[in-house]
């Protein structure tokens, strides 16, 4: 028996919004430590890794490890049927071929349940090595979303250059070129507005704007985003999900032909 309850549907709606542009379907691996989803986009350029810890759910029961393949478009449609302040309970029997989403209004007067067929997904699981990144940038997530949107107008790809002075985002194409430089915040009044750079070695990498823009769909989940970079390895874009866990996007760099 699997049962996980959140007092508020909003967070689950935001999580679905953050993945459904990249992934059509995904396998939710449930264990007593929580829920994990790892999946690549169709073109195998990026990887989404979602971790939700069991102790942060309002109720969590997982008697046996369970892998539930879900159509994320359908799941998003179902979650749209919940009001933001509804309690959400996800339930499945062991070895079941369906999962049930139950929504309960705050006054307990409306209870709805939606059953969804599970899918058998033959998905590759990738082992992500522990990496000490040369540069780790923390910055406001809205600012990152804005930069990705603005620079995508100029080119399909964006260069991210991180030095101890700051981080520079650049794009150039037929229309012209764009550069946005962010210096490390000297005076941090509000932590969520800070730009913080931890640099061991400077890094310059090139990434596809399309994927970066897809990652920024997670912006409503967290005020800050963390970018981790090292030469010749995928970028990690991480959004924390309050005390529930995190969503990490890995993006393969563009390389010289």
């Amino acid at each position: 028996m699997f049962e996980a309850r959140l007092m508020n549907a909003t967070i689950l709606k935001k999580i679905l919004d953050a993945v459904k542009d990249l992934l059509n379907e995904g396998t939710f691996d449930c264990s007593d430590s929580g829920i994990q989803l790892q999946a690549m986009d169709n073109s195998h350029v990026s990887l989404v890794s979602l971790t939700l810890r069991s102790d942060s759910f309002d109720k969590f029961r997982c008697d046996r490890n369970l892998s539930m393949g879900m159509n994320l478009g359908t799941m998003a449609k179902i979650l749209k049927c919940a009001n933001n302040d509804d309690t959400v309970t996800i339930k499945a029997q062991d070895n079941a071929d369906t999962v049930t989403f139950m929504f309960e209004s705050q006054n307990h007067e409306k209870v709805s349940d939606y059953e969804m067929k599970l899918m058998n997904l033959d998905q590759e699981h990738l082992g992500i090595p522990d990496t000490d990144y040369s540069c780790v940038v923390r910055m406001p997530s809205m600012e990152f979303a804005r930069i990705c949107r603005d620079l995508a107008q100029f080119s399909e790809s964006m260069v991210i250059c991180c030095t101890k002075e700051g981080v520079k985002f650049s794009a150039s194409g037929d229309l012209g070129s764009a550069n946005v430089k962010l210096a490390q915040t000297s005076n941090v009044d509000k932590e969520e507005e800070a730009v913080i750079i931890e640099m061991q070695e400077p890094v310059t990498l090139t990434f596809a704007c399309r994927y970066l823009n897809a990652f920024t769909k997670a912006t409503p989940l967290c005020n800050q985003v963390q970018l981790s970079m090292s030469a010749d390895v995928p970028l990690v874009v991480e959004y924390r999900i309050s005390d529930l866990g995190h969503i990490r996007y890995y993006l393969a760099p563009k390389i010289e032909e």
Binding site: H44, V45, L126, T206, A208, Y250, A252, I255, E257
Partner: peptide, 13 residues
């Protein structure tokens, strides 16, 4: 520039 694949960095488990 060419787009590399994520599978060339992370091994299949």
């Amino acid at each position: 520039m060419a787009q590399s694949s994520i599978t060339s960095y992370f091994s299949t488990r």
